[in-house]
Amino acid sequence: MIFVFFLILLMLVAAIAASVFRDLISAVIATTLVSLAASILFYLLAAPDVAMAEAAIGAALTTAIFIIAIRRTKRYEE
């Protein structure tokens, strides 16, 4: 139970951090953390199908696509 609360807290902190960071790569990593914590939460809520999709798409592919896009544009938000 404590672990679940820790995950929820981690998601909240990471989501706020993602919107506050000026460095976009750090913001993308923070959103990845949100996805990762969400996928563990889905697993604990007995939804392994959703957890798998969230881990593969939310944590891996979306991060890669964002980072490729940032590499083509600017890294820092002014």
Binding site: P48, D49, M52, A53, A56, I57, A60, L61
Partner: peptide, 13 residues
């Protein structure tokens, strides 16, 4: 658990 979408996403990763 899992299926076409999940397996496809894993292969793409």
């Amino acid at each position: 658990p899992g299926g076409g979408f999940q397996g496809g996403a894993i292969i793409a990763s």
